[in-house]
Design a protein around this nucleic acid. Structure first.
Lengths: 230, 230
DNA sequence: TTTTAAAATTTGTAGGATGATTGGTACATT
DNA sequence: AATGTACCAATCATCCTACAAATTTTAAAA
């Protein structure tokens, strides 16, 4: 088999190193990275080369530069940034369909592969959600709801699924938040969450898929209502 | 409402324009774009600015530069390129699970929304696949198989789903092709394709989902076999 | 203490210079 | 005719210096 020659140019080398620094958490989200001068010396490249590398990551959504101020880390997940940018052009209902597709599959995989830790996390989020509802802290509730669903996807232990799901969930979350500011809060679908949890615990793939479908149907109806009231 | 200052810097402006030229098809995939000097004049920016813009798109996978030769258009879909790069690090079986998730949902949506044109395309691919098998042209068959499945997803008329599915299908396709070079060809699952087609035509969501599952299970087994034989 | 003005820092843009790689051409060799 | 070599031109890769614009920090003034 012929191996493609892989001579990375300087810019890509630097960009790759920076990506790694971000991915490894050495530079956290929100951090200001060192100024160009310092990075030039550290990577031993010219200003142009360094700037091209940084610009590539800015375009990819990992960094954000502000003239006079500096450069900060904006995201650690290039794929997530790409999806977010792309989805902004799509319709919300299309996004919901894709989320349903991914989460349904995730729930089934979770039923197969969930660990004790996964179950504990899910149970904790259900508990916290209930408390948030009792305090009528609906914003907090929405956030916990998202975390619950993300925990379901995490329990699938499929990294690609997790990476694709995350940005979609965030988009839907912020959309719901925006609309919620003008309407009454969501109905709390506690039963569905508990039933989904139970299905995953008892490793019932079929039931897990069904409850995800039910939940997404409820969510879809609320979103449709909100859009129509607009 | 305060409008976020939308002073895009020059680099992003140029990158955005180039993206548009690619997206609109003015610059086709495989085309060589004009050299830096010419683009500098056309966009009226300095060499640095132009290079940073091009570099951003190279990193995103839309362009590819070759020293001494020029810069060519490599892809028109930034999201697809991002997914492809990302998936290279994931396991093939994880990718299959995600493909199953998306295609299952797509099949159900296709059962709802398919047009007559969609049905005609699906039928045509089935017909061509059969001919390819008769001619024992298995490479051609695999290609047609992919097209069939992509047509199923297209029939969902959910653009986000289509955009996410495409790169995954390509990856699996090239993976299967690589492995096929050393093994015997795939078994032809003609019945499943016909049954999926029939389900979509008769708008039977449930059946459509089931046949996708069955097909993916067959595919999974073959991939597992191939990996183990490695 | 608060306000204002200057200075320093940092990214944005421009332009030029040199080196490296590629593709093609012409010519010689086999 | 096919292959190998030397050369040339086009093009990107990298580096350098300079100045502009935006922001932050510092210092002076009220």
């Amino acid at each position: 088999m012929i191996q493609k020659t892989n001579r990375m140019n300087l810019v890509e080398q630097v960009a790759s190193q920076i990506e790694q620094l971000i991915g490894s958490g050495h530079w956290q989200i929100g951090d200001r990275i060192p100024p160009e001068m310092e990075l030039m010396e550290k990577f031993d490249v010219s200003r142009n080369t360094l700037r091209e590398a940084i610009r590539a990551l800015v375009h990819a959504g990992l960094l954000e530069t502000k003239q006079g101020s500096g450069t900060i880390v904006r995201s650690a997940n290039a794929l997530g940034a790409a999806i977010k940018r792309h989805v902004k052009k799509s319709a919300m209902l299309e996004t919901l369909d894709v989320r349903l597709a991914l989460e349904k599959q995730a729930a089934q995989l979770a039923a197969e592969h969930r660990s004790e830790t996964d179950l504990a996390k899910l149970e904790a989020y259900i508990q916290l959600s209930r408390q948030a509802v009792e305090k009528k802290d609906y914003e907090q509730f929405i956030e916990l709801d998202i975390h619950f669903h993300q925990a379901v996807v995490s329990a699938s232990h499929n990294q690609l699924l997790i990476d694709l799901y995350e940005p979609l969930a965030e988009i839907i979350y912020s959309f719901v938040q925006d609309l919620m500011a003008m309407n009454k809060p969501f109905k709390y679908e506690e039963e569905l969450h508990i039933e989904l949890f139970t299905a995953i615990r008892s490793q019932d793939k079929q039931a897990a898929a069904t409850y995800v479908e039910d939940y997404m149907e409820v969510l879809r109806k609320e979103v449709v209502e909100m859009i129509e009231e607009e």
